[in-house]
Design a protein around this nucleic acid. Structure first.
Length: 859
RNA sequence: GCCCGGGUGGCGGAAUUGGUAGACGCGCUGGACUUAGGAUCCAGUGGCAGAAAUGCUGUGGGGGUUCGAGUCCCCCCUCGGGCACCA
């Protein structure tokens, strides 16, 4: 019933057999509460592309599967789910080309991915499968959006995006290469478009502080820290000469205020027009015009020389009353700080370069403790040329200057972040529609005047507005009860000519009658119903970016079919945060930052109990092609897992991916090397099973030889430790060592073989189940516990000591554990080879490291 | 430019706190079995010298600390990743 009747290692029969067994017996069905401790192993779910699975996907899936199976064997209640991040551009582009609905493409691709993944025999609870494009899923993605909207974290702004006039399309940054569209090589330009933006900056501090407690790779934490980019400094007010206005700058080095010899404002800074003198007007306008034409790439190109023009205006330095010129230059960015800086060329690389270029005075105000300081000097030191602060340490000076600025109301301590708000809308079809409608101010006020109701309940404190064709429109939420807000059918997936989503091209969907009280929506193709609450509205046509669905999927697996909440809080509380989350390092900032933002927000509004989404994170390393290059269709070095499984089996592929090298290392694939694993599995089969398919006659119930037992227990220790620390490559090699040894044994205890199979089961589950059944064990092998390490089996009563002379190995000896130091040293010195190296020399020193090494120093 | 992570046989890679460098696998060499082997088994395999025992040498390069360094410190070369005028 459970085992096959194979006489040789026929993985093509054995593997499907056990996959069926696991499915029929619900071996990996996860129950939502249990007395056992829980273990939640999570993979970054894939985008089901048309190309199918590549060899990199199963690397992470195998790792999480090993942990899931290992934990199950150790008595845990394990959850190991899988799903599909299925909204996205490729299906939409395919639709534009062929007219095939993206839902159809997605369905086909998901089926192919599922089939491919199932061939690996992962311990996945397929009853919990999720798909971000299912209405039952994305209604909750939309629900979260409405919560963000209600809490004032979603707003609308004009933001520059890449627009390609030729393609009539908005392009993502990744789709623009060297100022041309990736498709067709057409020129692109910056265009301001109305965008929904999520106020992730409101969470900058929480996102930064939360990192502390996470068990994540340091490099990933560092990347997020750098991305959030917190800096501490001061805002300083400089009076604009000849007016009662002032210009505020942000600086991290208020201690260098005495060295400020000019100021710079960004070309987009609002003060430019008023500060510019008549004589400089033309030059400044020309400069602004030119920099507006530059792409972001040009503006941030460090290699180019700095540019700028004087405005003719001046400001007064608050610390010394000095009058200094104000320039406009595009090396200052309008979006950071106040968009204006004080320039201290002696102590800032960029200002130094600019001042040198334009012959602006450079005044040193900090002296290095070392001699011969070269400017620019950007470190800390002692103040010079700084009035009352001269002689002070620059750190202390910084504190005192901030204090004084605050006391005289000329400035204040300030914190800045590099983190920008998250542009959340996409002008596309294949995404979650944003559940918002637009109404007039009068209608909005009417909605706001309601005491409660499905619309009123989700309205923010401050209205979200946008200007369209001269009219200001107000955003109202669709009621939660109307979710999921589904995509309408369209004739054509092509974007509109104005850079709006294809949804904007369907008037019957776009223009609606909207009921302010109930949130009901009806097409304007129908007659307007009676009643004061019905108003005219237009729908939001943007959709959400692909990140949306992956921001909270870790929660949905816990309760995938819940129609009343995104997750039942009891279930969420039981399963908690994934104990292990594995995926590519390319998501270090985007997905992993966005998901943290949403999760922390959900925690703040009480929707979840865990403060962070992913407690323990790991990145598997890229698997390169045989040529050592990244696998890609165009290089022709892509390895198809289906073909490898056909030829070598899933167990071989799983083991080989783990044997390739450390899990987090980038490593090249080699189809030739998988032979080693293939041989290993066949050797194992032949160790256990004879030509008739019966248990080998030298495997007998009874005690094990001390020698076999010793290596078995070394292996139990090594494999157990290696699985815990994800050292799967060395776990496999230790299993090979033990097999090589057992092969040479005349007889083997049945218990040894069974323990061996238990150790192998997480890594190569099919052959382990099959051979386990052949030894008379009842399936699943995972229900039979994990081997226990017994130190007494190691025979540690003997110690091996290495003899060195002058640090070089010259011999070795074995002693009873309690042998005295003197005896070991004497034996070592009497050793023949040791003798030949110390003969005729004077012994200077004798070192004995207990149980390890003797080193005789002689010359 | 700045911040990380690497560099060990022909190849992928092993090596607690500094303590036998090269585990395991691939490949290669020789042998056994075989009509045959791209199957299987046995032996060998860092380099140089030697029939062998063995000796010397050896973890990107150069210096240093130490009885002892792949491992620790300093300088440099190189490959990979991330950030990139954030004041």
């Amino acid at each position: 019933m459970s085992k096959t009747d194979c006489k040789t290692y026929e993985f093509s029969k054995i593997e499907p057999n056990w996959q069926l067994f696991w499915e029929e017996n619900k071996t990996f069905h996860a129950v939502d509460s249990d007395d056992k401790p829980k273990y939640y192993a999570l993979d970054m779910f894939p985008y089901p592309s048309g190309a199918g699975l590549h060899i990199g996907h199963p690397e992470g899936y195998t790792a999480s599967d090993i942990l899931a199976r290992y934990k199950k064997a150790n008595g845990y209640n394990v959850l190991h789910p899988m799903g599909w991040d299925a909204f996205g551009l490729p299906a939409e582009q395919y639709a534009v080309k062929t007219g095939t609905h993206p839902a159809i493409t997605t369905k086909t691709n998901v089926e192919n991915f599922r089939r491919q993944i199932q061939r690996f025999g992962f311990s996945i609870d397929w009853e919990r499968e999720i798909n971000t494009t299912d209405p039952g899923y994305f209604r909750w993605t939309q629900w979260i959006f409405l919560q963000l909207f209600k809490h004032g974290l979603a707003f609308v702004d004009e933001r520059p995006v890449w627009w390609c006039p030729e393609l009539r399309a908005v392009l993502a940054n990744e789709e623009v290469v060297d100022g041309k569209s990736e498709v067709g090589n057409h020129p692109v330009e910056r265009r301001n478009l109305r965008q929904f933006v999520l106020r992730i900056t409101a969470y900058a501090d929480k996102l930064l502080k939360g990192l502390d407690g996470l068990d994540w790779p340091d490099s990933t934490k560092r990347q997020q820290t750098a991305w959030i980019g917190r800096s501490e400094g001061a805002e300083v007010n400089f009076a604009i000469d000849g007016t009662d206005q002032h210009l505020t700058v942000y600086t991290t080095r208020p201690d260098t205020l005495f060295g400020a010899t000019y100021m710079v404002v960004a070309p987009e800074h609002p003060v430019v027009s008023s500060i510019t003198t008549p004589g400089q007007k033309d030059a400044v306008q020309e400069y602004i015009r030119k920099s507006a034409l530059k792409s972001d790439l040009d503006r941030t190109d460090l290699a180019k020389e700095k540019t700028g023009v004087p405005t003719g205006g001046h400001c007064i330095n608050p610390v010394n009353g000095e009058k200094i010129p104000v320039w406009v230059a595009d090396y200052v960015l309008v979006g950071y700080g106040t968009g204006a800086i004080m320039a201290v060329p002696a102590h800032d690389d960029r200002d130094f370069e600019f001042a040198t270029e334009f012959d602006i005075p450079i005044r040193q105000v900090i002296e290095s403790p070392e001699e011969d300081t070269e400017l620019p000097f950007t470190a800390v030191g002692n103040m010079v040329n700084s009035g009352e602060y001269t002689g002070m340490a620059s750190d202390e000076c910084k504190r005192q200057i901030i204090e004084k600025l605050e006391a005289t109301r000329q400035g204040k301590a300030a914190v800045n972040f590099k983190l920008r708000d998250w542009i959340f809308s996409r002008q596309r079809y294949w995404g979650e529609p944003i559940p918002i409608v637009w109404v007039s101010k009068a209608d909005y006020d009417k909605a706001a005047a309601q005491g409660c109701g499905p619309v009123r309940d989700m309205m923010p404190d401050n209205p979200v507005t946008t200007d369209k064709e001269g009219e200001t429109l107000y955003a109202l939420p669709l009621p939660v009860s109307s979710l999921p807000h589904k995509l309408p059918e369209v004739e054509n997936y092509q974007p509109s000519g104005t850079g709006e989503s294809p949804l904007a091209t369907i008037p019957d969907w776009l223009n609606i009658h909207f009921n302010l009280a109930t949130g009901e929506a009806l097409s304007q193709a129908e007659a307007k119903p009676d009643g004061d609450d019905w108003v005219s509205a237009i729908r939001e046509t943007n959709t959400m970016p692909q990140w949306a669905g992956s921001c909270w999927y870790h929660l949905r697996y816990l309760d995938p079919k819940n129609a009343d909440a995104l997750v039942d809080i009891e279930k969420e509380n039981y399963w908690g945060s994934p104990d292990f989350y594995i995926g590519g390092a390319e998501h270090a900032v985007l997905h992993l930052l966005y998901a943290r933002f949403w999760h922390i927000f959900l925690h703040d509004i009480g929707a979840v109990t865990t403060p962070e989404p992913y407690q323990r994170l790991f990145h598997q390393g890229l698997i390169l092609g045989e040529d050592g290059e990244k696998m890609s269709k165009s290089r022709g070095n892509v390895v198809n897992p289906d073909e490898i499984i056909d030829e070598y089996g899933a167990d071989a592929l799983r083991l080989y991916e783990m044997f390739l090298g450390p899990l987090d290392a980038v490593k090249p694939w080699s189809t030739k090397n998988i032979q080693g694993i293939s041989r290993y599995l066949r050797k194992l089969w032949n160790l256990v099973v004879d030509e008739e398919g019966k248990l080998q006659s030298n495997i007998q119930d009874g005690p094990e030889s001390p020698e076999n037992a010793k290596l078995l227990h070394e292996t139990i220790r090594k494999v157990t430790g290696d699985i815990e620390t994800l050292g799967f490559n060395t776990a496999v090699s230790q299993l090979m060592i033990l097999l090589n040894h057992l092969q040479k044994s005349e007889s083997i205890a049945l218990s040894t073989v069974q323990d061996y199979l238990k150790l192998l089961a997480p890594l190569a589950p099919h052959i382990a189940e099959e051979l386990w059944a052949r030894t008379g064990g009842g399936p699943s092998i995972l229900d039979n516990g994990w081997p226990t390490f017994d130190e007494s089996k190691l025979g540690a009563a003997q110690i091996k000591v290495i003899y060195q002379v002058n640090g070089k190995m010259r011999g070795e000896g074995t002693f009873p554990e309690d042998t005295a130091k003197e005896e070991i040293l004497a034996t070592a010195k009497a050793h023949e080879r040791v003798q030949s190296f110390i003969e005729g020399k004077t012994i200077r020193k004798e070192i004995y490291v207990p149980g390890k090494i003797v080193n005789i120093v002689a010359n």
